[in-house]
Computed example of a mutant assay.
Amino acid sequence: MIDNEEYGYRRTTLRVLLIVTIFAASFFAVNNWIAGFNLFAVIEGIVAAFWCVILVIAKSTKHLKRWSFVYLCTFYFLVIYGIMITTFKAGLFSWLFIFPILSYLLLGLKAGTWITFISVSGGLAVLGNMVLVNNHGMHWIVMGNVGFTLATIWSMVYVYESKREYIFNHLREQARKDPLTGLLNVKALNDTLADTLKTAQRHSYPVTLVYIDINDFKLINDKLGHQKGNEILLSVANIITELTRVEDYAFRYGGDEFCIIFPNCVHEQVRQTFGVRLAERVNLSLNQLTMSIGYAQTGPSEFCSPDSLIHKADKNMYIIKSIFKSGDSFNEWKEINEAS
């Protein structure tokens, strides 16, 4: 949801800028034709027509950043070319002031910084050459004002975009996390599993999904209260985090259920390493607490859909849970899991 809002914000910005600059380019094309700058007028007209095409594309394109980059490049070319062929008094250099703003608004922090550096450096170099050729002392004062103004605008926009991007990334991360355990949430599971399976298909390696349910959790909540239940969920989540690899993904699926994605791991490998260790740690640390664990593997040759893999792991978990009886010992639980 937050990613869509970010994308929509940049899309709207690009379309508004296109509308404004299309009218500006058209107006100055007529003006420059009358003033005798025929070639420049024709170029402005062509660019304005090209921007009309981008305006139509920008409404629904999946490559918004690329088209924003193309727009900025054509805009920059138009300004620099205009500065080079017209007089200093024409004031075309004033368009340079908005390039830091446009670059960060449309491309974000990293790409915006590079585009700003190139556009500001190039613009100042062209202006400096004009001043050197004309050799007018007053122009150096104007040149200094232009340079410091550009540096000020660049600094302010950089600070703003840095803070905005930090807040955006923080909110996006929070939207993907379960507030109690700090693990990823069910929305992140759907997105992450889909991406993991795509990568696994490209590289032909297996993916194993583990579905975990805490046994008798409702009984624990009823007897000891929800606060104790939350403490148990947090402890289980911490143990899962300690036992999983950096490349694995752990999720709280909801209630007392957890899911873990193991890229490049087969079913038996996950069961014998992670599953056994997790069960033993939880049983030892949390007053003989037991869990029902279901495993499902897809790949490396044939792959199922994310929903099918989740359903299969969930089904296997419930098979274990249906055999387990309240009050069974940990050794009895191990026998059930080893026999499954």
Results as ranks from 00 to 15, higher is better:
F23I: 11
K198L: 14
V276F: 07
M138R: 15
Q269D: 10
F40M: 08
I80T: 11
M1C: 08
I118W: 10
S155N: 02
Y76C: 05
K177E: 05
T241C: 02
M138N: 13
K65M: 14
A250G: 14
K321Y: 12
A296Q: 03
A250N: 13
N129V: 04
K223M: 06
N134I: 05
A194G: 09
R172H: 08
R15I: 09
N283A: 11
P300N: 08
A188N: 12
K218S: 10
I46F: 12
I101Y: 12
A151R: 04
N185H: 09
T181K: 06
R281T: 08
M1W: 00
E338R: 14
V16M: 06
N185R: 01
Q269S: 01
F97T: 02
F23H: 07
S155P: 00
S68T: 10
L127I: 01
I153A: 03
D222W: 12
Y76I: 03
E242L: 07
M317Q: 13
F37I: 01
V210H: 10
S204R: 10
F88S: 06
T12F: 00
L197N: 03
V207I: 13
V79Q: 10
K65I: 05
S308M: 11
W95H: 11
G112C: 13
Y166D: 04
N185K: 03
E161C: 07
F23M: 11
F262K: 14
E6C: 06
E332Q: 15
I260Q: 15
T116G: 15
M143I: 02
L180N: 05
Q174C: 08
P206E: 14
S68W: 07
G112P: 14
V20T: 04
A151I: 05
A175M: 06
A111E: 13
V142W: 02
G36I: 03
N221Y: 07
Y160K: 08
H63D: 05
L289M: 14
K315T: 03
N230W: 08
L106C: 13
E242G: 01
E247P: 00
Y166T: 04
F50M: 14
A313G: 11
S162G: 04
L55Y: 15
A49R: 13
D195E: 11
I293L: 15
D256V: 05
M291R: 00
S322V: 01
K321D: 08
I85H: 06
L286P: 06
C265Y: 09
L127D: 04
G36F: 08
F117I: 14
K110D: 14
V270M: 06
L286A: 00
G294S: 00
V146K: 02
Y318E: 01
L289C: 04
N185M: 06
F77N: 00
V142D: 03
A188K: 08
S103C: 11
